[in-house]
Computed example of a mutant assay.
Amino acid sequence: MFEKILDREQIFKDEPMKKHTTFKIGGNADFLLLPKTIEQILGCIKICKENNIDYYIIGNGSNLLVSDKGFRGAIIKLLKNFNKIEIDKNIIKAQAGATLSAIAKKAYNNSLKGLEFASGIPGTIGGGVCMNAGAYGGELKDVIKQVTILKDNEIVVLSNNECEFEYRNSKILKENLTVLEVYIELENGKQEDILEKMKQNNKTRNEKQPVEYPSAGSTFKRPLNNFAGKLIMEAGLAGKTIGGACISKKHCGFIINNGNATCEDVLKLADFACTKVKEKFDINLEKEVRVIGEK
């Protein structure tokens, strides 16, 4: 059915999702679709709805945990084909599948400052906007001018305020809207200053985060006036493992795939950490990673 709008090389059947997430975890999806245009994205969604097929849109799969049983339906992946980046003076226009690191590099190449914080974030701008991704004192809400989204099969443009950005949240995420394009507004800056800040951020990331292991980034949201990693460490859980999942000794806010971790391993370990932190500090940790698939 998807052959009506996509070429054969854009359609994969019974595709292992561990190949499409930074956690390297996940069973097979019935379909993996790689649209190249907005029209093809709309067409894929239309076919899914007409045939009662569940669908989920992903970028780099960097904040995602897919069930060991896989996903019954279609995964629409924007990373590979829907990733153009254009610049007009101090405005960057990026398709949803463009990576934050690629956009940050483009900004640097054009002497535009304000996106240095995102240079090491592994996700795409589409997913990043949904969860208002941030690091090192910066968040996407600080630089977003407007976002083109898909709502009820209509293309709608939201201003920054209309996105209702919060800490790791937005109206887009709450209402399960689809990001198509993002407009980022930056300021002119000196290339050497921009590069220095990017280098420093990436040095800090490499020193303090377990980037050498598959993960989904920070597993938990930051609790009010505290840090998830600090609480988990003080609960004595550094290095704790369940199956192939491990709480990183380098940064306890990260659960890493230490080998052949399953989705079940990660969720059990995350729940265990939440329970122990609640018992010791009476603080509720909330998972940041999104979980999809057959239960």
Rank of each mutant, 00 (worst) to 15 (best):
S170N: 13
N169F: 04
I149K: 07
C163T: 09
V182F: 03
K203M: 14
E164T: 00
N201V: 06
I149T: 10
E181I: 03
T178G: 09
E181T: 12
K171E: 05
E187Q: 14
D152A: 12
G189T: 01
K197A: 00
R205N: 11
I184M: 10
N176P: 15
E196S: 13
L186A: 12
Y213I: 00
I149W: 11
A216Q: 12
E212M: 08
V147S: 10
V156C: 00
V147T: 13
T178Y: 09
V147N: 07
D152P: 06
T204V: 12
N202I: 10
N160V: 07
S170F: 09
N153F: 12
E196F: 01
L177I: 06
K199S: 01
E175F: 06
K174M: 12
P214Q: 11
I194W: 01
S159L: 09
L150D: 10
T178N: 15
D193P: 01
Q200H: 05
R168F: 03
R168K: 15
P214V: 11
Y183N: 15
K197N: 10
K151T: 01
N153P: 00
K151P: 10
I194D: 01
G189R: 04
L173Q: 12
N153Y: 06
M198W: 00
E181V: 07
I149E: 11
E154I: 10
E196V: 00
L195K: 02
K190M: 06
A216F: 14
K151N: 15
N206A: 13
K199M: 01
V157C: 11
E192C: 03
E164F: 01
D193W: 01
E175C: 04
L186N: 10
T148H: 03
N188P: 12
S170H: 11
N176M: 08
N161Q: 14
Y183T: 05
E187D: 14
L177F: 08
G189C: 05
E192L: 03
E164Q: 13
L173S: 05
Q209Y: 06
V147M: 06
N202Y: 00
K174I: 07
K190Y: 06
N169E: 14
N161M: 14
E154W: 05
N206C: 04
L195D: 02
E162F: 03
S170M: 12
E192Q: 02
V157I: 14
V157L: 09
E166S: 11
N160K: 15
R205M: 13
E207P: 12
T204G: 04
Y213L: 04
R205T: 11
E181A: 06
E154Q: 15
V156L: 08
M198R: 01
N161A: 11
L158Y: 07
Y167F: 14
N176L: 10
N188Y: 14
S170W: 12
Y183P: 01
K190I: 02
L173Y: 09
E181Q: 15
V156G: 07
N169V: 08
V156I: 15
F165V: 07
N169D: 15
K208F: 00
Q200G: 10
T148C: 05
E207T: 07
I194E: 01
L195I: 00
K174E: 14
I149H: 08
G189E: 06
N188T: 09
I172H: 13
T204A: 11
E212N: 02
N160D: 11
K171L: 15
K203L: 12
L186G: 10
E166H: 04
R205H: 08
E196H: 03
P214K: 05
G217Y: 07
F165G: 08
V211S: 15
L195A: 02
